[in-house]
Each structure stands twice: as C-alpha cells, then as structure tokens.
C-alpha cells in the first residue's frame, strides 16, 4: 500500500491546517507527517487503507467547491479551513464511498496528527520535542541507577 503523490500533497497540506505553524512549529515542521504516514502505511490494516482514500476525497471536495483547476493544497488557508469545517460538521459536497465518511475521517486525522505532534519524539511526529518546547514540558528522566 502506498500514497500517490497527490494524496501525499493533500495529506501534508491537511496536517498543516490541523496544527498550523505560528510563532512555534506546526505539524509539518515537527515531522508529524512522518508519524501519520508510518501509522497509515505501517500496519497495513484495512482501516488504514480506507483512511488513505480520504486524501483523494479531499481533492474531490476542493473541485466541487472551487473548480477543477484547484487541489486542496493550492487553496488559501481560509478556504482550506472552511472546507475542513464542512467535513467536521458532516457537510461534504461529494459522495464519500462507504465505509469512508467525511466527519469520522477528518476526526481520525485530527487525532492522529495530535498523537504524533504531542507524543514523545521517538514516535516520529514531534521532532526535537518541538511541541514540548512550546508547552515547557520535558520528561526530565535520567538513566536508571541500578536495574532491579
């Protein structure tokens, strides 16, 4: 299983709207796409396969709203956010082939993005502990003194 280049582009744009950059890194700068991709491609489960189809659907939603010359990635951020708000509210403009459904799909991606972004860096989505730096969090553990 893999993503087409256009699916990958849509995924990246989506992640940077779910956790946008401001004074602090957003999802992409923190490498959250690495975590999400690992999750979607890694376990190869049927559920993950269904989620991949959603990225094509995102472009279809874009075309339905803004015409065939646009993709989700080429929209302006406010247009992207409006489209995502529609999906979150279960107001898609295109047909999402079951079991895919707009709102659950978007909410799952929101969960995945934040899992990667706020988990420990070893999970791949929080490079250089970017999100932890923003929050002032650090585990502050030191190596074990003596293993029991």
């Amino acid at each position: 299983m893999s993503l087409s280049p256009s699916q990958l582009t849509a995924l990246r744009s989506l992640l940077d709207r779910i956790i946008p950059a401001d004074d602090f890194p957003g999802a992409l700068a923190a490498g959250t796409d690495t975590y999400v991709l690992r999750h979607l491609l890694g376990d190869g489960s049927a559920g993950a396969h269904v989620l991949l189809l959603g990225f094509s659907q995102l472009d279809a939603e874009t075309v339905a709203r803004h015409g065939a010359h646009q993709t989700f990635a080429t929209l302006l951020p406010p247009q992207q956010d409006a489209l995502l708000a529609d999906l979150a509210a279960a107001r898609p403009m295109t047909f999402w082939p079951p079991p895919l459904a707009a709102a659950p799909w978007f909410h799952r991606l929101v969960e995945l993005a934040h899992e990667g972004f706020y988990a420990d860096p070893a999970n791949g989505g929080n490079r250089d502990a970017a999100s932890w730096g923003m929050l002032g969090y650090a585990p502050r553990t030191t190596p074990e003194r003596a293993a029991p």
Binding site: I18, P20, D22, L84, A88, V110, H114, A119, Y137
Partner: peptide, 22 residues
Amino acid sequence: LPLIFWRQSLPPDTPRWGLANK
C-alpha cells in the same frame, strides 16, 4: 503528559484543531 492533556483536559468548548486549539 501533553497528549493526555490534549485528549482529556482542554475546556469542552475548545476547537479540536487549528490555530485555536494550538
């Protein structure tokens, strides 16, 4: 932990995504 806080402890009317959530 940050992730547990994100999942459970934000005020209920906080948007779940986007700049407002961050």
